[in-house]
Design a protein around this nucleic acid. Structure first.
Lengths: 160, 160
DNA sequence: TAATATAATAAGGTAAGTCTAAAATTGTCA
DNA sequence: TGACAATTTTAGACTTACCTTATTATATTA
């Protein structure tokens, strides 16, 4: 009953799109989803049919699309994966927002829970900014941009 | 002529497997690839046919499979992506080797050149071990393991 | 309210990637 | 050398995920 009921990448994309659209405009139609994902309405109808079968969305013929509680929960999980990956690629690796978004969009379907959890901790560690991290991060970004190591850290000579 | 000629994830997997097997045993047969990838020989035959069409492998009917120069080049590119991802997930995020491998195996097909290039620089930065990184990395791993921040860095009080 | 535009759906097709089952080939060894 | 086993291949089916085209439903507005 509480089994994961795996979704394909494609269905995850549809579910995520429906969720995002419903945050933006209260009412979601086939057409909106099609535009968002760059597919034909026919493809959306098909996908929605499958999501309905799995109890993740509701859809009255020729009417609006909405998420069930289960669908909502699932969509937020997917979106969380998305934002974590975006943050990593943008804030740590310094990719521009678009590239980071696109990368997240693809990888979000394939990364494991285990790996994702590590990434979360990594971000926590970096973003909550303890001792050396600010220096380290600056040094990293300088290196990513210029290919050269900065000499920001005054520790250098002291180390051994 | 020098166009990328994109491969599907699946074909990349086959090509990579053939390459890995040919490093291990000089001669590669349909059967070996099937075992390695956990698919039926019939699937391998199909895939190999497509790789032959693209000029990446050679195959005499009922005989051995080998890589062309082009296929070799391509396979090493794929494997490089693989190792970069493995290193990141294992050495930086501290995943066990198996999980890191599995993660790399999936993501290697989907990560963009741009993102991968950043990851490479990231690894360079960390592994070539400059000023603060050793401290920082120790702190990160401690945090990943225990959830607690260590006070390894003596800088703490000095900073402002 | 009838005509028209827009939206949704159904039907049918293509391509990738797998499978099973059956047929063809090859290699081994008694 | 001939028969059996292992391997490879072919043929055909299924699933996912798209598409196009044609039909049906809804909404707008003259």
């Amino acid at each position: 009953m509480r089994g994961k009921g795996k979704l394909t990448s494609s269905l995850e994309d549809y579910l995520e799109a429906i969720w995002l659209l419903s945050r933006e405009s209260k009412v979601v139609r086939v057409r909106d989803v099609a535009r968002r994902l760059g597919v034909t309405p026919a493809s959306v109808v098909n996908a929605v049919k499958m999501l309905v079968r799995r109890g993740l969305v509701e859809h009255e013929p020729y009417g609006y699309i909405s998420l069930t509680d289960k669908g909502m929960e699932r969509a937020t999980q997917i979106y969380e994966r998305h934002t974590i990956l975006t943050r990593f690629f943008r804030d740590i690796l310094g990719l521009d927002s678009n590239s980071a978004e696109r990368t997240a969009c693809i990888l979000e379907h394939h990364i494991s829970e285990k790996a994702l959890a590590r990434l979360v901790k990594f971000l926590e560690f970096v973003e909550e900014c303890p001792d050396v991290t600010p220096y380290w991060l600056k040094g990293l970004h300088h290196y990513l941009e210029t290919g050269k190591r900065s000499v920001i850290c005054p520790l250098r000579v002291k180390q051994r």
